[in-house]
Amino acid sequence: MDERERERAVLDRIGRGLVYTESEAAFQAGRRRADLIFEYNHTPPGQTERQRELRAAILGSCGADAVLLPPFHAAFGSNVHLGDGFFGNVNLTFVDDVEIRVGNGVMIAPSVTLTTTGHPVHPDRRVDFARFSEPITIEDRVWIGSNVVVLPGVRVGYGSVIGAGSVVTRDVPPMTVAAGVPCRVLREITEADLRTRVAPD
Results as ranks from 00 to 15, higher is better:
Q47G: 00
P70E: 04
P70M: 03
I37T: 05
G17W: 08
L82P: 04
V90K: 11
G83M: 01
V98K: 00
G153S: 05
H122A: 12
P44F: 08
H119W: 09
E5S: 15
V172A: 04
P110A: 05
E49C: 04
L54I: 08
T48W: 00
A75G: 10
G60T: 08
E5W: 07
W143M: 12
F38D: 12
E22G: 12
L68W: 09
E3N: 11
G103S: 03
T176H: 08
V185C: 06
F27W: 09
F94H: 00
A178S: 13
R184N: 04
E53H: 07
Q28P: 00
H73C: 02
V198M: 13
G83L: 01
I100D: 00
R52N: 11
D171G: 07
V167N: 06
V10W: 04
H119F: 11
V95F: 07
D84W: 01
E188V: 10
S160W: 10
T196E: 12
P182S: 06
E39W: 00
E134W: 14
A57R: 14
P123V: 08
F76C: 07
G60C: 10
V148H: 02
P123D: 08
A29K: 09
E191C: 06
V142F: 10
N89V: 07
N79T: 00
M107T: 14
T137H: 14
P173C: 05
P110L: 04
R31M: 05
R52K: 13
P71K: 11
A179N: 04
V181G: 09
D35Q: 13
G77A: 05
D124K: 06
P152W: 04
F132T: 05
A178I: 05
G88R: 01
P110C: 05
V177Q: 10
A66T: 10
N91F: 11
L69F: 12
V90T: 12
H42I: 07
G15E: 15
I37A: 02
